[in-house]
């Protein structure tokens, strides 16, 4: 057994998990609060990476690239909620899946038409180059910074969810939209904000992961599938479920890869199946939510 390989894969699992947490968080809160399954969420992540790539090419500033990716997706989220998603709140999940799946294809193909199918690179920022000596492992500086960035983002998200009026409405809406409405709160307006912020998180994740992965039009597909597994494991609509589920998923994928990378996905789905059998509502899900 090669210990440094194990350590490296543990850390890779952590960074992959952190990415999945960010993407899954938007997905799970949108699904929980709005009842919409957004199959375009992976495409949003991809568009965020491209927006960051374009901004970086124009300004050579990584920070501006991150801001551009997040802002672009906030805007995309708001436009798409108003223009498409809100007509699907009262429709069956199949309709939502068809509409958002179609939207995802349109976004992916539009990007492919504009930028071509070849991979683009967003370089690691200057403050993220090189590797850090952790004593037992040399690990890329940027990946450690990504862990820090995700941790800070999650703290901010936590404070928004648990310490603000908006968060109170969102948490209540995840459980019982109608009662929130009956208590005088215009949930439609909240939905717009939630969809915008959830999309923004996907775009943000796309940019900060662009230096680690290659930027191609299909980059969101796998992330979307894995994020769905994360929220099934963690429980729909749960902050802690997305967090713990994401880290578990990242480690499963990464540690399985030591033995046989081809089995990574299989193990991930096996884990999901076990959770579904033992605890169908997910690790942190509430049974019988409305």
């Amino acid at each position: 057994m090669n210990w440094s390989l194990l350590w490296a894969q543990l850390f890779n699992g952590l960074t992959l998990g952190a990415l999945l947490v960010l993407v899954a968080m938007g997905l799970t809160i949108i699904f929980g609060a709005l009842g919409v399954i957004n199959f375009a969420h992976g495409a949003f992540y991809m568009v965020g990476a491209y927006a960051g790539y374009v901004a970086y090419a124009a300004t050579h500033s990584f920070v501006l690239a991150v801001i551009a990716g997040a802002a672009a997706l906030l805007l995309v989220g708001i436009v798409i909620e108003r223009g498409l998603i809100r007509y699907y709140y009262r429709r069956p999940h199949e309709d939502q899946i068809l509409a958002t799946f179609g939207l995802g294809i349109i976004l992916v193909e539009a990007v492919r038409a504009w930028f071509g199918g070849i991979s683009q690179r967003l370089p690691v920022p200057t403050w993220g180059t090189g590797a850090v000596n952790l004593g037992f492992l040399y690990y890329p500086t940027y990946r450690i910074e990504v862990l820090g960035i995700v941790a800070v983002t999650l703290v901010v998200l936590y404070l928004v969810l648990y310490r603000t009026r908006l968060g109170l409405i969102v948490r209540a809406g995840i459980e019982d939209q109608l009662m929130v409405n009956v208590l005088g709160i215009n949930v439609n307006r909240t939905f717009l904000v939630v969809f915008g912020l959830g999309s923004m998180a996907a775009g943000f994740a796309g940019v900060i992961n662009a230096p680690i992965v290659t930027v191609v039009p299909d980059m969101g597909e796998l992330v979307l599938v894995q994020s769905f597994v994360v929220i099934v494991i963690g429980g729909v609509g749960s902050f802690w479920g997305a967090l713990i589920g994401g880290l578990i998923a990242g480690e499963i994928i990464s540690l399985t890869a030591i033995v046989q990378p081809a089995y990574s996905e299989v193990m991930l789905f096996a884990a999901m199946a076990i959770v579904l059998i033992l605890r169908p509502q997910g690790l942190f899900g509430v049974q019988g939510r409305q």
Binding site: R165, L168, M179, V180, V182, L183, G184, I185, V286
Partner: peptide, 27 residues
């Protein structure tokens, strides 16, 4: 006008105080 529904519809994941604060938001 305020309905107190038959099923009570308490938000189970929120604390008692959060349930009350939620109700005051738009009053």
């Amino acid at each position: 006008l305020q309905l107190v529904p038959e099923e009570r519809r308490i938000i189970g994941g929120l604390t008692v105080e959060e349930n009350i604060v939620l109700a005051t938001l738009t009053a």
